[in-house]
Amino acid sequence: MTRIAVLGAGGYAGGEVLRLLLAHPAVELVQATSEQHAGKRLDFPHPHLRGQSTLRFSPHDALEPCDVLVTCMPSGELIRRWPQVSPRAGRIIDLSADFRLEAAEHARWYPRAPRSVELPRFVYGLPEWTRDTLQGARYVAVPGCMAHAALLALLPLARAGLVRPEVVVDAKTGSSGGGATADRSSHHPERASALRCYRPVGHRHTGEIESATEHLAGMRPIVHFSATAVPSVRGVLATVHAFAARPLEDAAEPLRVLATTYREHPFVHLLRANASASPFPEPAPLAGTNHCELAVDVDAERGRIVVNAALDNLVKGAAGTAIHALNLMLGRPETEGLGFRGLHPL
């Protein structure tokens, strides 16, 4: 059994990592850390873990050696703790933004937490696009949740040369994307009925989408990214507006590109018109799952290709992709421990 510890397991993403690890048949959860909950049982902040484990949280500085460490700390914390943390784990999967970008680009988007070029490079943990590199990897950086959805929609079109290198991404997200620590804007009375664009420009996922598209599809686009808060707890819905780089063979060409790209990938599903009573992606049926749903439509008159991508920000957008990457790193079946398929109605 692979011995796994979770650093910073008191938050929402950490709780989902714990849930998935406790049900995984090939791993043993040996430690979980939280400064706020040190000494308390895992189910103290995570009621969905009741009866699942007798483990108690440890302080961060009490981290013990393990085979794999999953880190769920706020951005900047793994960089700061690297000298103490890295010797204690053979492999590390990080859910923060600390290692998603090259050092120079990271400094541009995260100036308060610059990363030394001497620190190791992490594999970008987008399994549908970096599956081969993840196999046997030592260090993995899980993508940001909204960037993740946008990239699954955009990358096939970019790699196929179907779209111009300038796209618009409108991402909607639930309140859990803001984490477990409330501020004025995320406090329930302020957030419960909110439908507001909270970051029209300058969101950090802009740079992540641009960088990942360049590295994985060979085209660096200009990305116009906006993030909108919606009155839900879980979920991301990213709408990608791209513009055809050439005349399309027909209106179904983008659909064929997406279908071919994800045919062998078990966690991405392409919805087709008239094949379902709900032919457009929405996050609710995906809550708790490691699945992403896509749908594409084409405005042939204007050459606009619109792809919608929905996922659960805490699972496919965080914890589930960490486990997916873990499976590939360990040579396990990639769907192992990720079988939950969602609920409806919810």
Rank of each mutant, 00 (worst) to 15 (best):
A5M: 08
A5T: 01
Y12F: 15
G14M: 03
V17F: 11
V17P: 06
L22R: 07
A23N: 14
S34H: 07
H46T: 10
Q52F: 04
H60G: 04
A62C: 02
C66H: 14
C66I: 10
C66Y: 13
R80V: 03
S86V: 15
I93G: 00
F99N: 01
A107L: 10
R115D: 10
V123W: 01
G125W: 08
E128W: 07
W129H: 11
R131P: 02
T133N: 01
V142M: 04
V142D: 01
C145I: 00
A150Y: 03
R159A: 15
A160I: 12
P165D: 04
V168Y: 04
A171H: 05
T173C: 12
G179E: 07
A180C: 13
H187P: 00
H187L: 11
H187E: 13
H188K: 00
E190V: 01
A192E: 10
A192T: 12
S193G: 05
A194Q: 07
H203N: 14
L216K: 09
P221W: 10
I222K: 06
F225P: 02
A227Q: 15
A227D: 07
S232G: 04
V240N: 00
A244P: 11
P254W: 01
T260E: 15
Y262G: 00
L270C: 09
P279E: 09
F280N: 01
L286S: 06
G288Q: 04
N290R: 07
H291C: 09
V298H: 07
E301G: 04
V307R: 02
K316G: 00
K316N: 09
I323G: 00
L330A: 14
G337K: 03
G342Y: 07
